[in-house]
């Protein structure tokens, strides 16, 4: 169980699953999220130029968010990451499962250090986790800009 419960419910559940698992099982879980990352919708496939490159990731990763109309301003997240970069895909898969479909305010309320709560530092190394922190930061910035 995580010490503070200030995450959206789905994200909190993911954190609980990860922290309850052994280091080895955390890698397996991450691989599941990598496998389950939704494919990029057709309308983005030829429009990667319109997506934001995540410089913190070592592989070419692009993401974009769409924010719906009032009152909820529902957030949808789209990420493109190569199959040869399963760790990065896993990070994206966790963020997608934890954030997609939430109201903008809930996404913006996610603490910037949320990726550090998954207990992945020892499984993938702290350096690699920076990619996920970078992804979350860019998602929140886009949500802020697009819901203003």
């Amino acid at each position: 169980m995580s010490a503070t419960r200030d995450l959206p419910e789905a994200f909190e559940q993911i954190v609980d699953d990860f922290t309850a698992a052994s280091t080895r099982e955390r890698l397996d879980l991450l691989l599941e999220f990598s496998d389950e990352l939704p494919e990029l919708p057709e309308r983005f496939v030829d429009a990667r130029d319109s997506m934001e490159r995540v410089d913190e990731c070592q592989s070419p990763v692009f993401l974009t968010v769409e924010v719906g109309d009032h009152p909820d301003r529902t957030v949808h997240l789209y990420v493109d990451a190569p199959l040869e970069a399963p760790t990065t895909r896993g990070f994206a898969g966790i963020l997608h499962a934890g954030l997609d479909g939430l109201p903008a305010d809930d996404v913006l309320a996610v603490p910037d250090d949320a990726p550090m709560r998954l207990g992945l530092a020892e499984a993938v190394s702290p350096l690699r986790l920076r990619g996920m922190v970078g992804m979350l930061g860019r998602i929140k910035r886009q949500v802020r800009a697009k819901s203003a």
Binding site: L27, T87, V124
Partner: peptide, 9 residues
């Protein structure tokens, strides 16, 4: 590998 999970795929 560079990617720690690539082996696992």
């Amino acid at each position: 590998d560079e990617d720690v999970l690539l082996y696992d795929t």
